[in-house]
Write a protein that binds this DNA or RNA. Structure first.
Lengths: 144, 144
DNA sequence: CTTTTTAGTTACTCATATTAACTATTAACT
DNA sequence: AGTTAATAGTTAATATGAGTAACTAAAAAG
């Protein structure tokens, strides 16, 4: 069973391009979207949480967060541990989330068009499995 | 069926990291590997062909090709259309291809471990289909 | 209370991409 | 044939996004 990486990677750039086109009107890129998405899902979160979830180093998340703060899509919640920066979506952030989420879902539907339901479900199951296998031995940046 | 992009993208960084680790002993990165791979598969090719296959702009491919030429893994074939730069693998290029191909196949096997044969086959079928859907309307860098 | 750990930031560098403008060459059209 | 348009590739400038190392501030552990 050869060539799975090739098939996988052949999707990446077109996908990112489409997503960035979709997000551009909101002043977002996919990497910023990831942060919004995470916060919306998990509730108020810290940089370390986001960082370790996405397997990305802290400085990268710092930068994403700063950009989202500038755009007033997220804001800091003061808490008692003063090391920690807990962030949440602003009202605007929530609105932007909703709009983008909807458009992304539409795009997802478009991309899965022509696939049987079971095929789609299998994809949903297999992709995380691949990720898991990928992280198991070689140690490719999950635990930050 | 939401969240397919998220599942897909969660694989990208760990995968690239693994591939780059694997290729590093050969002075390659995955982006250079893509070019070698394409040429090996398709035979002598032009920059535009590679560029449009991967959905990457021409200048990016120019750079990749230059780097591979420096490393003497590919070389130019003179042809009659003097605008076109047709490249092929050198002897060293072929040797490096073989070694890397083998290692990558092993990694692919490792990553697919625990999947039924039919599941693997389905992946091989569905990923290209996704790519096709992705390129169809929005125009995400196929026709360069 | 000193030491260690944790969260986040800053500074620097790397990998890779994009756009725009350009050259050279071939193809198309009158 | 001779002009115009299209094509292949390159160069230059810039953007995105990541990683590492070194740092500050604050809390936890001892």
């Amino acid at each position: 069973m050869e060539g799975i990486f090739r098939h996988y990677l052949a999707i990446y750039r077109p996908l990112i391009t489409r997503l960035n086109q979709l997000l551009e009107p909101y002043g977002l890129t996919y990497s910023l979207w990831q942060v919004i998405f995470y916060i919306e899902r998990e509730g108020p979160s810290t940089l370390v949480e986001i960082s370790s979830y996405y397997g990305v180093e802290k400085p990268s998340i710092t930068r994403r967060v700063h950009r989202l703060e500038e755009r007033e899509l997220i804001e800091q919640i003061p808490g008692k541990d003063r090391r920690v920066k807990v962030i949440r979506l602003t009202g605007r952030g929530v609105a932007v989330y909703r709009e983008c989420r909807e458009k992304i879902s539409l795009l997802e539907g478009e991309i899965m068009k022509g696939m049987a339901r079971e095929e789609q479900e299998l994809l949903h199951r297999l992709l995380p499995e691949i990720r898991k296998n990928l992280m198991r031995k070689g140690g490719a940046g999950d635990e930050a």
